[in-house]
Structure formats: structure tokens, C-alpha cells
């Protein structure tokens, strides 16, 4: 596979928090346009992997590339290619939703007029347009989830990384997010999704990886991986959970 065809390429990634080894020599290739599901028990290393990919965590060993660009040496390029929808609602409490998105677009080099337009388009798409002039504290949990998605997409990234995007969502919102992710993937975006919901991974993902104790214990395309078993059964088998 050519470098430009590899949306994400991780080789021999090792990460410690003090003496605790969070990632143990993991390697992973995700091709352009893939919908990759990253599963694992709590504390297995999913969020750490995401943090390394996005530059929020340092690492001790290995190589991480995004479309052939090194995330450490060429971070200004790789960060332009990635949109992160994090788990926590980490918004500036002093800004309105529209300001928040407009500033975020600005950091990505998008001029103010275009930023305002993109912000309104996304707010419209995620049914938040009526809330554009309120602060995030006035939003419900589901609305905040959607705002996280808007923020991740404001610069139209090639790769969308989502850390448990539907955790705590009601069914309606879950289906809205699923539909939207499937549509984005159809449009050519590479999606990297972590989730605890097997149904979500089975429904959406083309490729699935399972991580346990900082090691990738199973990876492959969905059909090959599942064959005659459910994802839950495979997950239980490789993680040793009952």
C-alpha cells in the first residue's frame, strides 16, 4: 500500500505513563476511506492510541504517520488532516456555540466569513442552529455530543476520529450519528471509531481491531473476523472476558 493510501500507519508504538505500559509495541494500518472500529475493555489503550495519533500524548517508541506524514515531525500537516470528537465536553465556557466553532475554524486557517458559513451549515445539519448564540452549558447532553461532532468537522478533515461518540445517547441521537457517520464514510472520509457497543461496530465498521492490555489482539476486515461468530463472541474470546 502506498503511503498516501494509508490514512493511518502505526509501527511499533510503545507508550508508558510513568512505569505503567499503556501501549505495547502496537502496529496498525488503516487505509484511506476505511471505517475502522477500535474495540477493547476500559483501560485497554483505545484513548491513549487516539491521543498519540492526534498529538495529545507523547510516546516513547515507534512511528505514527497520517497519510505518510510523521505526527511528531510534521504535526502541523497531520493535525490539519484529523478531526477529533473526544469523549468529554471540553468547551470554553465563555464562548457561544457559534463563536466556539468560528474560532476553531480560524485555528485551521479558515477565513472568518467561510468559518461562519461552515459553522452555520454544521449547526443546521446537527439541528443546533437555534442554539447558535447560547453557551454550551445551556445545551442538553445530546446537544453537546452533536456540538463535539460539529467541532471535529469544522475544518472538513480527511480522517474523523470518534472516541465513544454514542455513549450515553438516546436511540434517536444514536441513529442520527450512525446515519451521519455512514454518510461521511460514503463521501470518502476515513473514520476511526472507538466504542463499547458491539452492535455499533458490527453495523458501521468495515475493519475492526481489538486491543487488550495495550496490545492489539485481533484485527481484520469485518467479514473475515466474524465468519460464523458474533462480534461479542470474538471480543470475549480474545480479551478473556466472561
Amino acid at each position: 500500500m502506498r503511503d498516501s493510501e494509508r490514512a493511518i500507519s502505526i509501527k511499533g508504538l510503545t507508550k508508558y505513563y510513568g512505569k505503567l505500559q499503556a501501549l505495547d509495541n502496537i502496529s496498525l494500518d488503516i487505509k484511506r476511506g476505511d471505517f475502522f472500529g477500535f474495540l477493547g475493555p476500559n483501560g485497554a489503550g483505545k484513548t491513549t492510541t487516539i491521543n498519540v495519533l492526534t498529538g495529545l500524548s507523547n510516546f516513547q517508541k515507534g512511528e505514527v504517520k497520517v497519510f505518510g506524514y510523521d505526527t511528531t515531525r510534521e504535526y502541523t500537516r497531520t493535525r490539519r488532516l484529523i478531526g477529533l470528537c473526544a469523549q468529554e465536553f471540553n468547551f470554553d465556557p465563555f464562548l457561544t456555540i457559534h463563536q466556539l466553532l468560528a474560532y476553531q475554524a480560524g485555528y485551521f486557517g479558515i477565513p472568518p466569513r467561510e468559518a461562519a458559513q461552515r459553522s452555520d451549515e454544521l449547526l443546521e445539519r446537527f439541528q443546533l442552529i437555534e442554539k447558535r448564540n447560547v453557551k454550551h452549558r445551556a445545551l442538553s447532553g445530546g446537544m453537546k455530543k452533536r456540538l463535539l461532532m460539529c467541532r471535529a468537522l469544522i475544518h472538513d478533515p480527511e480522517i474523523l476520529i470518534l472516541d465513544e461518540p454514542t455513549a450515553g445517547c438516546d436511540l434517536e441521537l444514536k441513529f442520527l450519528i450512525w446515519d451521519y457517520l455512514a454518510q461521511l464514510n460514503k463521501e470518502g472520509k476515513t473514520i476511526f471509531l472507538t466504542t463499547h457497543y458491539m452492535e455499533e461496530a458490527e453495523k458501521l465498521c468495515k475493519t475492526i481491531g481489538i486491543i487488550n492490555h495495550g496490545r492489539i489482539v485481533r484485527i481484520g476486515d469485518r467479514q473475515t473476523l466474524l465468519k460464523d461468530k458474533s462480534l461479542e463472541a470474538v471480543f470475549m474470546e480474545v480479551t478473556g472476558l466472561e
Binding site: 504535526y75 502541523t76 471540553n90 470554553d92 485555528y107 467541532r151
Partner: peptide, 14 residues
């Protein structure tokens, strides 16, 4: 404190 510093850290600003 609020961790919205991530908005800046995730951006392509050097």
C-alpha cells in the same frame, strides 16, 4: 482546567 486547551493543541498551529 477546563481542558479546552485541546482546541488549540489539536489545531495545525505550530
Amino acid at each position: 482546567w477546563h481542558n479546552h486547551i485541546q482546541e488549540v493543541l489539536l489545531s495545525p498551529l505550530s
